[in-house]
Design a protein around this nucleic acid. Structure first.
Length: 271
DNA sequence: ACTGGCTCCTGAGGGC
DNA sequence: TGCCCTCAGGAGCCAG
C-alpha cells in the first residue's frame, strides 16, 4: 500500500485518535520486523504522543518523554485505530494501547516495515539523516534537482526513486509523474533538458498532492477501517495498464523492468 | 561517487 | 484441488 500519499493519509487519519492520550501499555506479538523492535520501546508506557510528523515515508511519533517512535510501513504495512475488543488479525504485530480506549495496531504481512524507539533527535537517526528533500517542500527545486540529475546516468525513473535525490516518490508515482511530464522513463537523468526537469517537478508535486487529497476522502472510514485505506487506482494513467490503450492517445501502454521495478509508459505521449 | 544486484518476508494469481 | 512459479506499492547494504 504505502507510497507517500498513503503514509500521509495514515498520519492524518490516526492523529486525532491518538494525540494527547496516555499510552497505557504496549502489546508486542512479534518484534522481528525489517529491524528488530528494540526492547526500549516499553519505555513509551506512561507518556503520550504529542505530535506525528512525516519525513519521507517514515512516521515520527513525538512523545512527551522527549523520545520518539519511528515507524515505516514498508511494502505491506498499515496502521489502524481499533477498539481493544477487536480480534487480532493475522499479521497484527503490535498494539499501542491508549488511555482514551483506542488501540493503534500495526499490521504488516511481509514485515518489511519497522518500528524503532529513539531518545535522540529522530532526524539524526541513521535512516533519516541522509535523506534528500521532501518533494512538496521548497528544497525540491529546479536548482538542486538539475544539479543532482547532471551527475546521474541512471534512467530518470530510477533516479526519481533514489531517496538521496528526492524522497517519497515510489514505484507507482514515478511512472505516473513521468507520464504527466511527457518524459520517457528510460532517459538517463543527465540527458534531460532543463525544460523537461522544469515540467517534471510540478508533475511530481501535482500527482502527490492530488493523491493525498483523494486519500483524504477515505479518512472518515478510518476508525472502522478494514485495513485497506484509500487506493487511487481509478486515477492511474499508466501504472498497471500494460497493453491497454493510453487514455490520451490510445497507443498501448508499454511495460519494462527498470532496476528490477515494473515501469509503465506511453510510447507516443512520452519522449 | 555511482551503480546494479541482492536481500528481507508473505500472499496473490496464473499455468498446468 | 494442488503445486510451482512469478510478481508485488520499499529501501538498505554491499561489492565492483
Amino acid at each position: 500500500m504505502p507510497e507517500l500519499p498513503e503514509v500521509e493519509t495514515t498520519r492524518r487519519g490516526i492523529t486525532p485518535h491518538v494525540l494527547n492520550s496516555t499510552i497505557s501499555s504496549l502489546i508486542l506479538k512479534r518484534s522481528d520486523l525489517r529491524l528488530p523492535i528494540p526492547p526500549s520501546i516499553q519505555e513509551i508506557a506512561g507518556h503520550s504522543i504529542s505530535s506525528i510528523e512525516r519525513r519521507s515515508k517514515y512516521l515520527i511519533f513525538h512523545l512527551t518523554s522527549g523520545a520518539s517512535l519511528i515507524i515505516h510501513l514498508g511494502m505491506s504495512g498499515s496502521l489502524r485505530i481499533t477498539h481493544p475488543s477487536e480480534l487480532w488479525k493475522k499479521h497484527d504485530h503490535v498494539a499501542i494501547c491508549l488511555s482514551n480506549g483506542n488501540q493503534l495496531r500495526f499490521h504488516d504481512p511481509r514485515r518489511f516495515g519497522l518500528i524503532l524507539h529513539t531518545t535522540h533527535p529522530p532526524d539524526q537517526h541513521p535512516l533519516l539523516a541522509k535523506l534528500g528533500p521532501e518533494p512538496l517542500s521548497p528544497d525540491f527545486n529546479l536548482k538542486t534537482f538539475s544539479l543532482a540529475c547532471r551527475k546521474r546516468n541512471t534512467p530518470i525513473k530510477t533516479t526519481l526513486m533514489d531517496s538521496k535525490i528526492v524522497v517519497g516518490v515510489g514505484n507507482i508515482y514515478a511512472s505516473e509523474a513521468l507520464f504527466s511530464a511527457g518524459i520517457l522513463p528510460q532517459t538517463p537523468a543527465s540527458n534531460l533538458q532543463l525544460k523537461q526537469l522544469k515540467k517534471l517537478i510540478p508533475a511530481i508535486q501535482f500527482i502527490l498532492k492530488k493523491s493525498i487529497e483523494q486519500g483524504g476522502t477515505t479518512l472518515r472510514d478510518f476508525i472502522n477501517a478494514d485495513g485497506k485505506p484509500g487506493y487511487f487506482k481509478q486515477n492511474l494513467m499508466v501504472y498497471g495498464r500494460s497493453g491497454q490503450p493510453c487514455q490520451i492517445c490510445k497507443t498501448p501502454i508499454q511495460q519494462q523492468l527498470l532496476s528490477q521495478r515494473s515501469t509503465f509508459w506511453c510510447p507516443r505521449c512520452q519522449k
